[in-house]
Amino acid sequence: MVEADRSSAAETDEVVSTAPVKVDVRNLTISYSGKTALRDVTLDIRQNEIFGIIGPANSGKTSFLRALNRMDLFIPGMKVDGSIVLDGREVRKWRNVYALRRRIGVVFPLPVGLPMSVYDNVALAPRLAGIKKRARLDPIVERCLQRAALWDEVKDRLDSLGSLLSGGQQQRLTIARALSQEPDLLLLDEFSIAVDPVTTMRIEEVLKELKQELTIVLVTNLVQQARRLADRTAFFLTGELVEVAATSALFSGEVNDERTRAYVEGRFG
């Protein structure tokens, strides 16, 4: 039994390691007004994988995501050191940060249905990018809603307010909206906090399919969610990267640090 587990773990590890690097993070340190939130993190995220990040509150998970799509620009006092190379280009060297953000989809912890219709929610990003014609927008909206497993539930009421959908629907709407800009990197920040278990499972299925087309970084405080979804998982603790390894290895006890074993087994956090 243990043998089988190990070999499958090794297999996944091998598959993952052959994929090219999507995001290369070196010596990333993040602080807010001098208070360090993340210290000297070095890791890489590979093409078409789901990269899980687990850790208790205040471990620097969200700060990590913020640095990836350069949200630090609008947060007073947030300072980022080190390097984040996305597709071979340092993100902080982008002169047009808006163009960078359009390549990165973000799903926040609490569902944010913008106070406009379901259709307009999903069409917002394409419209910002200059697509105005309904004939071109319609298929984009339908495709994104379908990919987010929401189309069947809202196709008859695309004109109703997005903020009036249920929590789980709004979260899928947020995913559809994040997909509408055709990102090749999708960041999810504890997406299931305000979503019921059934919807969570549906979204998880969606993510597994999306993995074929894009790279996903999944920050979660549900250890089991990382186990179910992530190809590789990083464990952050109080602003430090404790370790990063293939998920199967992490959960079968092949850890370098006792803290990881304790956290994964649910002994703290």
């Binding site: 359009r102 926040f108 913008l114 917002l124 910002l128 909206r177």
Partner: peptide
């Protein structure tokens, strides 16, 4: 935040 994440100026 949501709009900024969509690349809105």
């Amino acid at each position: 935040e949501a709009a900024e994440a969509l690349g809105a100026t």
